[in-house]
Amino acid sequence: MDGETNNAAGLWPVLRQLAKGDILGLGDSAASPRTGSLEARTTHADKVVASVCPYCAVGCGQLVYVKDKKIIDIEGDPRSPLSHGCLCPKGAATFQLVTGSHRVSHVLYRRPYGTKWETIPLETAMDMVADRVKKTRDANWEDKDKKGNPLRRTMAIAHLGGATLDNEENYLIKKLFTSLGIVQIENQARI
């Protein structure tokens, strides 16, 4: 049954008991071949990637175990002086956060007055957003205020960023949007 008796090594445990004189059969004579070869799944990971917990700002170290281009485990990094390998419940659930089926994998589009989401290609969506940015910026440019002070901006576009974005991402956001004349760039820190 269930692979066990198919296995040549899976001698009938009663016989093993007899052979070992194990009258009670509480120990390894009752072990199955699977149990005999049980291993931690991380033992055979292709790579272990050092990472940082994405939840709060304590910055606990994480190790991401990858096998066949799939994540098999995420746990604390014992080397970290911040966390010594510990994680809180949220950190411990990171595996579910990043590999969960709740994640959407397509770009979705809701047209004005629409009642449902439509799937559209990523490239199309990017083009559309770039187009909206340009149109809105061009139509709502402020060069000077009433007193002639320089403004050089558009107040018609705003940005709100989460605080789980990388520094590099924030940097490019600030760099691009400021250069576009967008002023209302804000993030979670204000909230």
């Binding site: 746990e75 604390g76 809180c88």
Partner: peptide
């Protein structure tokens, strides 16, 4: 965490406990 013990790792709960 029998599988972890086999690999000389401590059980997941004890490891995570802050």
């Amino acid at each position: 965490c029998y599988d972890r013990l086999r690999a000389d790792m401590q059980p997941a709960c004890a490891k995570s406990c802050p």
